[in-house]
Measured scan of single mutants.
Amino acid sequence: CSVCSEPIMPEPGRDETVRVVALDKNFHMKCYKCEDCGKPLSIEADDNGCFPLDGHVLCRKCHTARA
């Protein structure tokens, strides 16, 4: 995971895991958050999703503030 540096592995008792890929980086679902404010990001293409800027994973509000 690009945030916590832990491997993305299935939880005990499970055969599969879910990971998020954004900007060629891999994330646990729980680690997929705005780099500035820490708001959890949605994997859907909506207002709560990722608004990347200069290689950073940001929420819409933080993207607008940086732009």
Rank of each mutant, 00 (worst) to 15 (best):
L58T: 05
A22L: 07
C1I: 00
P12F: 14
V21S: 13
S42L: 03
E35L: 04
P10V: 15
E16S: 07
R14F: 09
T64L: 10
G49M: 07
F51C: 05
S5C: 12
D47H: 09
C50H: 09
D24N: 13
H28M: 00
K33C: 15
T17V: 14
F51E: 15
D15M: 04
K39T: 12
K61Y: 11
C1S: 01
F51V: 09
C62W: 00
L53K: 09
M9Y: 06
L58V: 07
V3R: 06
R19N: 07
V57D: 02
R60S: 11
N26C: 11
V57N: 06
P7Q: 01
G49A: 11
K25Y: 03
M9Q: 05
S42K: 10
C37H: 00
G55C: 06
H63E: 07
R60F: 14
D47C: 10
L41E: 02
I43G: 10
I8P: 02
A65H: 14
T17Y: 15
V18R: 14
C50T: 06
K61H: 15
I43D: 12
L23N: 14
C4L: 00
A22Y: 03
D36R: 11
P52G: 11
D54W: 03
P12A: 14
A45E: 09
M29A: 15
S5A: 08
C50G: 12
M29R: 15
C4G: 00
V18T: 15
C4K: 00
C37T: 02
D36H: 05
G13Q: 05
A45I: 11
I8S: 02
T17I: 10
V21Q: 11
D36L: 05
V20D: 03
H28S: 00
G38A: 11
C50Y: 06
N26D: 13
K61M: 12
E11A: 08
E6T: 07
E35K: 07
K33F: 06
D54M: 06
T64I: 08
L23G: 15
P12H: 02
S42W: 02
Y32R: 03
V3L: 10
P12L: 14
C34S: 01
S5N: 01
P10K: 13
V21G: 10
E11D: 06
D15I: 08
P7T: 12
E6V: 04
V20Y: 01
V20S: 05
K30A: 09
I43R: 13
K25L: 06
L41C: 02
P10W: 10
E6Q: 10
S2C: 02
L53D: 06
D15L: 08
C50D: 05
L23V: 14
I43V: 12
M9P: 07
F27Q: 03
L53Y: 13
V18W: 09
V21E: 15
I8Q: 03
C4N: 01
V18G: 15
D54I: 02
N48S: 14
S2M: 02
G38E: 14
V57M: 08
V18H: 15
D47A: 09
K39L: 10
E44S: 08
V18F: 13
F51Y: 14
P12E: 15
L53S: 07
E11P: 06
Y32E: 02
P7R: 11
D36M: 05
L23Q: 14
S5H: 03
N26W: 13
L58W: 03
A65W: 07
G38P: 02
E6A: 12
T64R: 11
A45Y: 06
I8G: 02
D36E: 09
D15F: 05
T64G: 14
H56W: 03
K33R: 08
K30I: 02
H63P: 02
V18P: 09
C31G: 01
T17S: 15
P7M: 14
M29C: 07
E11G: 08
N48V: 06
C37W: 00
E11R: 06
D24K: 11
P10E: 15
C62G: 01
P10A: 15
T17C: 15
E44A: 07
F51T: 09
H56V: 06
P40K: 12
K61I: 13
D54T: 03
F27S: 02
G13Y: 04
A65I: 05
C4M: 00
M9W: 05
V20C: 08
A65Q: 14
A67P: 12
K30F: 03
G38T: 09
N26K: 10
P10C: 09
C62E: 02
C31E: 01
N26T: 13
R14L: 13
C31Y: 00
H56D: 02
N26Q: 10
G55H: 07
A67Y: 02
R19M: 02
E44P: 07
E6D: 11
E44G: 08
L41V: 03
V18Q: 15
F27D: 02
C59K: 00
V57Y: 10
D36G: 09
L53I: 11
I8M: 07
D47P: 10
K30Q: 12
A67H: 13
E16F: 02
K33H: 04
N26S: 15
S42T: 09
E16N: 09
E16M: 04
V3S: 06
D15G: 10
S42Q: 09
D54P: 00
A65N: 11
E11F: 08
D24P: 02
C31L: 00
L53G: 05
M9V: 12
D47W: 04
F27A: 04
C50Q: 03
C50L: 05
D15K: 08
A67L: 01
R66G: 11
V3K: 10
R60D: 05
T17H: 09
R66V: 09
S2V: 06
G38S: 11
H28D: 02
A22Q: 12
C34E: 00
R60V: 13
S2Y: 06
K33A: 08
R14M: 15
A65L: 12
L41D: 01
P7I: 13
K33S: 06
T64Y: 11
P12R: 10
V57F: 06
V20Q: 06
R19C: 07
G55F: 04
V57S: 09
L53M: 12
E44L: 04
L58M: 10
P52Y: 07
P52N: 06
C50F: 06
M29V: 13
D24F: 03
F27K: 03
A22F: 07
E11N: 14
D24Q: 12
D36C: 14
E16L: 02
C50M: 09
T17L: 11
E6I: 05
R19P: 15
D47F: 05
M29Y: 10
C1G: 02
V20W: 06
L41A: 02
G55A: 08
K39G: 11
V18K: 15
P40D: 13
C59H: 02
H63N: 14
C59S: 00
A45S: 14
S42I: 02
E44N: 12
P52D: 14
R60L: 07
M9T: 07
C37A: 01
A65D: 14
V21D: 15
C34G: 02
K25I: 02
G13F: 05
S42F: 01
P40T: 11
K30H: 12
C62A: 01
H63T: 08
